[in-house]
Structures are given as structure tokens and as C-alpha cells.
Simulated assay, not measured.
Amino acid sequence: MTETWDPSDAGGLRLPSGRLVRGRALRRPLPADAPEPTYAVYLLGKRPPEVPWEAHWLRWPDFRLPADRGEARTVLTEAWRRTPADRVEIACGGGRGRTGTALACLAVLDGVPPQEAVAYVRHHYDRHAVETPWQRRYVRRFGDFG
């Protein structure tokens, strides 16, 4: 079993259940003072570079929604499932729109009502998270995709 994130790590989000996940902007370097993730989900339009930890690429163009909603639900559910034992990182280019949307979906999986999940992530992660109206709508309807 791996140690999870320190709650004070940059980009950390504590879900209501106590699970920890880290959101990050891939345009910025890894935080120097924090450990590497053990599992990551990268939300990008193109395949990301290889990393030394286990990672999953989810095709998700900037300012858009995931290309395959079924795959997105499967991948995000797996990320949420791993949070008690792994250092799970969710990241896109800027760390706000796609990352915030995915983090809000994890909050829904963790029991936050879908209509409150965006506000939860904006309060606990980044006040600019989930950038577009269609990303907000995606979070509200996330439970319907299962």
C-alpha cells in the first residue's frame, strides 16, 4: 500500500469521505516538495509523454468534453476507487477546466450531489475550476452516464 497525498500538498483536494486526490496543470513542473503520483489520469486532446508511474490518457480536448463519456466514467471511477491507497493525480494543460470537471465528477462519485459538485471543487480546489457551461452540465449529468 502506498502513502496517499499530504493534505497540504499543492493542488490537493479532500473529498467529503476523506479521500485525497491532486489536480495539476501539466504546463507546470511537478511540485518539487511533493512525491510523484502512483496513478494519474491525463485529460488531453493528444497522447501525453510517457511517465514513470501508472497513467491513463483520456482523450479530452481543451474547453470540451471527453471524447468517449463511457470511457471517462470508467476511468474516473477507477481513479476514485484508487484514492484510499494511491497518490492519484488528475491533470490537464491548465489544471482548471478539464481537471476541475473531472474532480467534480470524483466528488459526485464520493457522494456530493451533482448540482453541488462544481461549487464544492471551486471552494476546495480552484475558484476558476470547470470553465464552460457544457462542463458544468456534464458534471450535473455525470450520474446519468453510468
Rank of each mutant, 00 (worst) to 15 (best):
E3R: 10
V75N: 01
G11Y: 05
P61T: 06
A72T: 05
R140C: 07
A32D: 12
Y39V: 11
P52Q: 05
P31Q: 13
P16D: 06
R28M: 14
P114F: 04
L109A: 10
R22F: 14
P66F: 02
Y138D: 00
E78K: 14
R47C: 06
W60Y: 12
G11M: 05
P52I: 09
R47V: 12
V139K: 01
R141A: 14
Y125N: 04
V112D: 01
V88F: 03
H124N: 11
P7K: 13
A10V: 11
L76M: 15
D33S: 12
H128L: 15
F145A: 06
A79R: 03
F63Q: 10
G94Y: 06
R82E: 04
L109Q: 03
P48Y: 03
T2W: 09
R59H: 14
A79Q: 11
E78G: 09
A34D: 09
R122A: 10
L65Y: 02
A91R: 08
R141Q: 15
V130E: 00
W60L: 06
G45C: 05
P16W: 07
P16R: 15
R59P: 10
D9N: 14
V108S: 01
E3H: 15
R19I: 01
E3Y: 08
A55P: 03
H128K: 11
D6R: 15
T83A: 12
V118Q: 00
R14Q: 13
D6F: 07
R137I: 01
L20D: 04
V130S: 02
E131G: 06
F142T: 02
V75M: 10
R87E: 02
D86Q: 15
R122M: 11
V21D: 03
Y39F: 12
